[in-house]
Every structure is written in C-alpha cells, then in structure tokens.
C-alpha cells in the first residue's frame, strides 16, 4: 500500500520533471530537471527491488551523464548567469516529430508486449551474483568487445579534439 502511494508520488514527480526538461526556457534548468527525472527513475527501480539497477542509474545517469551535460554547458556559455536563452524555433517541428514518434513506439511496445513475471505483488529480488554471472560468464565476450569499442571511440574522440587545436 505504502509502496503504491509512493509509486504514484514518484510517477507524478518524474513526469513533471520530464515536462520541465522540455518546457523550461533555460538550458540549465532543463539539465537540472533531467537530473531529477533520472534520479526519480532510479527511485522507481528501488520500488521494483532491483537495487543494483537503481544504483547503476544513480551512478551513471544521475552522477556522470548529467554532470557531463552541465560541464558542457559551463564550458560553452559565455554568460554564466543562467538567464533564459532562445530556443531554436526552426527545429521544433522535427523535434516534435521525433519525440511523438518515439512516444508512440514506446507506448506501442509497452502495451503490446506480454510481460513475464509474477503477479502476486511481490517482485522478486534479483541477486547481484546472477547479474554478474550473466554479464561476465554468459555474455563475457560481447561485454569485452563493447568495452574495447568504447575505448576506441574514446581515444578517437581525443585524437579528433586534439587535431582541432592543431597539435
């Protein structure tokens, strides 16, 4: 019961923060709303008792990704005062199109899938050892391949950025 009430509170918060990301007039506010959305989703995972996923969500999206976004904002804006900025209106139709399409696709998938799992209101807690078995034993090779790919991408990005400075 208590979980259900909390779930609804968080659902409203997340949706509100999501709307804030889209509608706020300052990029800075958008980024901060995004953090709220990410953290809220992390809290949702806790209600689903997938704590590991929740913590990963906090660490990666709450801590790292949004920090990178904020850092990029800091580095690119000459005026640090956080006043509202003009949103590029010319791209709005495309953004609407893409956003609407994505929403339709997600809703379609969510409704159309028959989700597995137990219906007795008691979500099963996934043990972290099971996760690690999957990640490092069953899918070990793809995991390493993806890591290598990301590393190559990282190094490539550094090289490109360095070239731009003329080094």
């Amino acid at each position: 019961m208590a979980t259900e009430v909390l779930w609804w509170i968080f659902a409203v918060l997340i949706t509100g923060a999501g709307a804030g990301v889209v509608f706020s007039r300052s990029v800075l506010h958008s980024a901060i709303f995004l953090i709220g959305t990410m953290a809220g989703i992390g809290a949702m995972y806790i209600f689903l008792t997938v704590e590991f996923l929740a913590l990963v969500q906090f660490l990666i999206y709450g801590g790292a990704v949004t920090v990178l976004i904020l850092l990029a904002l800091m580095l690119t804006r000459a005026d640090p005062s956080g006043r509202p900025e003009k949103v590029n209106g010319a791209q709005m139709p495309f953004a609407l199109l893409v956003g609407g399409g994505l929403l339709a696709a997600l809703v379609g998938v969510a409704v159309g899938t028959s989700w597995p799992g137990n219906n007795d209101d008691e979500p099963t807690n996934i043990d972290i050892t099971a996760v690690s078995d999957r990640l490092f034993a069953d899918f070990g090779a793809p995991f390493i391949l993806i890591s290598a790919l990301l590393l190559v991408a990282l190094v490539g990005a550094i090289i490109l950025a360095r070239q731009e400075e003329g080094e």
């Binding site: 800075l28 901060i32 953090i35 953290a39 704590e51 590991f52 913590l55 990963v56 906090f58 660490l59 709450g62 801590g63 790292a64 949004t66 920090v67 904020l70 850092l71 904002l73 800091m74 640090p80 005062s81 956080g82 972290i128």
Partner: peptide
C-alpha cells in the same frame, strides 16, 4: 544494505550535482 559499498559511491557521486548547480547558478565567474 546488501549492496552497501556500491550504494555509498553511487550516492556520493550525486553530491557533485549540487556543486555544479551552485557554480552555474551563482552568476559569478
């Protein structure tokens, strides 16, 4: 917590958000 150690550094990472908000929101170089 079963994931206590992970929890600690995952949550501590969020600390930086407030610092960035202060840095960006103060209107000071």
């Amino acid at each position: 917590l079963a994931l206590g150690l992970f929890y600690v550094f995952a949550i501590l990472g969020l600390n930086i958000v407030g610092i960035l908000m202060a840095g960006l929101g103060s209107g000071n170089k």
